[in-house]
Design a binder for these strands. Sequence first.
DNA 1: GAAACTTCCGAAACCGGTTTCGGCAAGGGG
DNA 2: CCCCTTGCCGAAACCGGTTTCGGAAGTTTC
Lengths: 371, 371
Amino acid sequence: MQTASTDMSTKRPAPNRSRVTIADVAKDLGVTKSTVSRALNGYPDIAETTRLRISRAAERLGYRPLSHAQAIRTGRVRSLGLVLQIDSEDSARPFLANFIAGITQAASAENWTVTIATAETDEGVRETLSRLVDEHKADGFILPRTLRQDQRVATLRAQNIPFIMFGRTDDPTGCAWYDIKGEDAMRAATTRLASLGHTRIAHVPGGAEYTYSKLRIQGYREGLEAAGIPFDPDLIGAPSLTRQSGDASTRALLALPEPPTAITFAVDRAALGAYRAAQALNLRIGADISLIAYDGVPEGAYADPGLTTFAVNSRQAGERLATLLIKRIRGAAPEDLRELAPATLVERGSDRPPRLTPTELAQHLKHQSTI
Amino acid sequence: MQTASTDMSTKRPAPNRSRVTIADVAKDLGVTKSTVSRALNGYPDIAETTRLRISRAAERLGYRPLSHAQAIRTGRVRSLGLVLQIDSEDSARPFLANFIAGITQAASAENWTVTIATAETDEGVRETLSRLVDEHKADGFILPRTLRQDQRVATLRAQNIPFIMFGRTDDPTGCAWYDIKGEDAMRAATTRLASLGHTRIAHVPGGAEYTYSKLRIQGYREGLEAAGIPFDPDLIGAPSLTRQSGDASTRALLALPEPPTAITFAVDRAALGAYRAAQALNLRIGADISLIAYDGVPEGAYADPGLTTFAVNSRQAGERLATLLIKRIRGAAPEDLRELAPATLVERGSDRPPRLTPTELAQHLKHQSTI
DNA sequence: GAAACTTCCGAAACCGGTTTCGGCAAGGGG
DNA sequence: CCCCTTGCCGAAACCGGTTTCGGAAGTTTC
């Protein structure tokens, strides 16, 4: 027998305070457990008056069913799984807090919880995911950063485990998703630059393995087409996800015989690298060279001039993803759970009419390099 | 690799679509469930040879106990709880990814998981915490951002639920914690500034309700004392947690008759506000005014000049917190689970010998304000 | 050589729920 | 008036584990 002592230093592990069980509720009303269970779970063979009596008694006694006790029979733990990849590079992700907040909020609203795990590598993610699946720690999973060909998708699809993607993928069979229309954003960005007077507009894409990269390039090309500007493959820069590679990619584009006077970036961080390149080459952003990017990272606001970008509402993304995933787990068809939302333009100072023509810019750059 | 189908001697050619349970393992070896359970859980009344046979069979069959099935009897769900407060202001927390990565890594290592939830307000946090406790979604909790008097602590302590704090609190009874020695950092910062030649050194604290604020002020005062500089209450600025309030707080300090030539900040973000103030007042940071802060946010590296700061390893913090909490849940006494780690100095350009004396600085500022 | 321990494992209860099955009573149709 | 539904709920099995209890062997003690 455990006696509740006031000694805090004892090595006693278990709180072991007696909770209110379904049997307590049943006894209180003089009915059986099964009646209580069915009443609380909305079975049709319980009289309405009884249901009311029971739910009131449950409320009064403070009865809360244990989800893991339910799970043993139902197979549902009422939890959403999220496996994040935290690599050393971009571990500083400000969006994460909001994303998680969105997910947990929507989950809480349905009285679900969120089980989170992390890994550093692709393989680590897959292993962790497998473990969570094997131990049934979650009823379904949110997959961020989806690739064009994603092994996580293949695995979960094969095992028939509910999931939802934050992003899209090449083969949509059996997939539900929520995604931001990056393609629209890039089309709008390109159109906007063209209407400012730019004629040489480049694009620095993200990693080729990501679906969004393909889509954003596509949007960029649509924008060109709408503006009547011919597509020039040279103006697709090297894929860049970091400041450093964005810097390099920008320099390479500016070294072209006919350099771009404007660049669209698939991700903000790469665009921030362009600030460095511009400084080194003595170019003024928003005058000699214009930039529009995508993501809406806070650093963009502190850059000088501020980075014009298409911001993603990651909190909303988390909310919708959780909501849709719960529906999926409850049996909705994946085809009915596909949502796209727009990114919103944040106008700052990095996009302006061109001060120089591409030729003049080339001259200027040549002059710089000889100093 | 698991080969279930190639084994011809299996008694059940059943297409084992469902998971392998403890009964499957038992039947495979011709023992009972109880024997398997005790063998796998290290009970002493199982022969070593039997234990080996069983654990090998479990391995071979790919048996993974369901933690929620175990939980129903043991009361342990093998999960750590984390309730984050995500307020609209400082939701952009880059440290979060690393913190979570640390926690989940340590948890995974013990085959535990992490249940995460968020709330916006203090009260929301308490409610969410209560819900997780009531439904026993976690066996113990990590409490970040502890206050000097923290209701979460009171609640969990009263219900005898294991928890660990990231930070300290006024009444340590029954508390385990991991914390960074912010007091040491502030002492070192002050000493460092003093040895650079500063004699008027101010401190901008964090919110008064946080334990760390008290400790960092204390460290600051120790540093003054060690340097033989008398403490001047006027040099304790207004509590600041944001860029904006840091800006205001800095201006107020500089408006003193004898302004400080150096300021220590309890948090980086407030120090970044000082950059604005300096710019507005035409002061050069690292010359006219020196700064040393605390946290190690990435923005500090991009400031110009870079912000000298004491960086916190939040990944390690997460790791240790999870590790200690698991020990706590397993029965270790809270008094034995108290760890302090140092912050590490990141030298950048914001702290230099003073160019002006306080009096000269006051002159300079007066001159600025008349322009 | 019998009593007293040990060692090791099976049988069964148990944890807190859900779900199946069947039965009783009231109601409706013939 | 009887039979057949229908509505409603109790009894009991069940989910996948853990834990208690007891007993059959083997070992030691006297």
